[in-house]
Design a protein around this nucleic acid. Structure first.
Length: 466
RNA sequence: GCACGUGUCGCCAAGUCCGGUCUAAGGCUACGGUCUGCAACACCGUCAUCGCCGGUUCAAAUCCGGCCACGUGCUCCA
């Protein structure tokens, strides 16, 4: 039984989609003002695991992710560079997909962009006005929070304490709002040059929150199953989305709200000012493999803060290599016909534990432990030649199933060596047979210098690139 | 000020919602060993009573109270 911790109810609940076998899921995507950083990717990896596990469970998932391509920073930077919004964001959107694919993330089913859904946003704002949830002030339109008594039901935020205590940070005088909590639905254009759209609301641009209300509803319906994102979005973004969507439709907006915790870097918040801010590209530039990064980001359950350290990333690198080696070793293993009951049982147990872990609010740590335990048992059996033909087939199938969720076991790269290297390996084998170990070690060192590690096994020489 | 998160072996980290199966999963590292011509790989073994104090209970890492430490958020940052 699949269960999720629902931010809305603050409880672990059994997941039951609205329509049997179908899941509509919206995940808040990036604002493309810059390259996405590893914290963003933790959220995306979480979303990917969520989606893949739902598919593992047999659901047909419609996965929608927005790209926010109109926003204050984007406007500021594009103006600075003398580019249009589209020109400015194109580079970052291209980079996003590059990173996305490298990390083994499935592309969302639908990827709506804010700038292409202005009309839908305007339409929701008009509905809100009609229902008394919105008002105009100067050239902008604001949400009237007093008109939505349920405001705060997601974040359970205590306004009395919060706003009062942080009063110096709330600049209530800057805008002519009825209430400090009210937020902009539509921002009137202040200068003739800034990016703006003409609409029934006047010339301007949408507020930040409205795009997600508009686009999720358009593609998933007025009520849908899952809405997920980073924990920082709970307030105000998701709270405001609820106010907007439910204010406009009068129906429940989202049934399950899931939020991923932030990651820390070496125990501290990642921020540019601390100098511990990393994009995915930074890590790749430092030589870390995308799979290790993916493994690391998914190794801690999504609702736990993940303390990102380079030591941890190196550990992930080692672990991923072990896992990938394991699959390869199994694939190459020569086996006798038949089926070993013990190995079969180890496999059944691993599948049970894997599924039980992920069923429990996507506890990836438990799922990985199941995989590691299986690996150890099978490695032992391989060493003893007690893995039989049926076991091997079953095991490879199981690893593929696991990997349909984890996507870290790697694919079979064409194992090609150039003739020269192959000749050296052959020569070394010949030297070993002559017990000319000096020459054999010399060749091994030489290959090692080229990044090729040799492993002598009973069944011949294995090699791998570092 | 208000709200929240975290504190479990050298490091990372599961378990805490629903107390017992937890002298505590798993990973990395270290050390010892098996294997090996030597290595590498793989395997085996060794390494914790769960921040502190008190309480509830037959039973607490898990519940309650207090305290300490670290971190974060408080309107556009995943």
């Amino acid at each position: 039984m699949l269960r999720f911790q629902n931010t809305l109810t603050n409880q672990v609940e059994e997941f039951r989609p609205m329509r049997e076998g179908e899941v509509g899921m919206y995940i808040c995507g990036p604002t493309v003002w810059s390259h996405a950083q590893i914290g963003n990717f933790r959220s995306f990896v979480f979303g990917d695991i969520l989606r893949r596990y739902l598919e593992f469970k047999g659901y047909n998932v419609t996965h929608v992710m927005n790209i926010t391509d109109v926003e204050d920073r984007i406007i500021a930077f594009s103006v600075e560079k003398g580019l249009t919004i589209d020109e400015y964001t194109a580079e970052y959107i291209a980079a996003l997909w590059e990173d996305w694919d490298a990390l083994g993330l499935k592309r969302p089913t639908i990827v709506p962009r804010a700038t292409q859904h202005i009309a839908e946003m305007v339409s929701i704002i008009e509905k809100l006005e009609a229902h008394g949830h919105a008002y105009r002030s100067d050239d902008s339109v604001y949400y009237r929070i007093n008109s939505f008594p349920e405001y705060g039901k997601l974040s359970k935020i205590n306004f009395a304490g919060n706003i009062a205590g942080a009063s110096e940070r709330v600049d209530t005088d800057r805008y002519d709002k009825e209430d400090a909590r009210d937020f902009a639905l539509w921002k009137g254009a202040e200068t003739p040059d800034e990016p703006a759209w003409d609409s029934s609301l006047g010339r301007g641009r949408p507020g930040w929150h409205i795009e997600c209300s508009a686009m999720s509803t358009k593609y998933l319906g007025e009520t849908f199953d899952i809405h997920a994102g980073g924990i920082d979005l709970v307030f105000p973004h998701h709270e405001n989305e609820i106010a907007q969507s439910e204010g406009a439709t009068g129906k429940q907006f989202v049934r399950y709200w899931l939020h991923a915790e932030h990651l820390k870097v070496e125990g501290e918040t990642m921020s540019k000012s601390r100098g511990n801010y990393y994009t995915f590209r930074d890590l790749r530039g430092l030589g870390y493999s995308p799979t290790a990064i993916r493994y690391y980001l998914l190794s801690v359950p999504y609702r736990k803060q993940l303390n990102f350290t380079f030591e941890g990333l190196r550990a992930a690198e080692t672990t991923v290599e072990r896992l990938q080696d394991f699959r390869k070793r199994l694939k190459e293993a020569r086996v006798e016909p038949g089926k070993n009951e013990e190995v079969h049982q180890a496999m059944t147990r691993a599948l049970m534990e894997f599924e039980a872990g992920l069923d429990d609010d996507l506890n990836t740590s438990v799922a990985l432990a199941a995989l590691h335990n299986l690996m150890r048992e099978v490695n032992t059996a391989l060493r003893d030649y007690t893995v039989l033909e049926d076991n091997k087939r079953e095991l490879l199938e199981l690893l593929d199933r696991f990997d349909s969720v984890l996507n870290v076991l790697g694919h079979d790269e064409a194992a090609m060596l150039d003739a020269e290297v192959q000749a050296l390996i052959d020569e070394r084998q010949e030297a070993r047979r002559r017990r000319d170990f000096a020459r054999a070690d010399e060749i091994r060192d030489q290959l090692s210098a080229q990044g090729i590690t040799l492993e002598d096994t009973k069944d011949g020489v294995r090699w791998k690139r570092r």
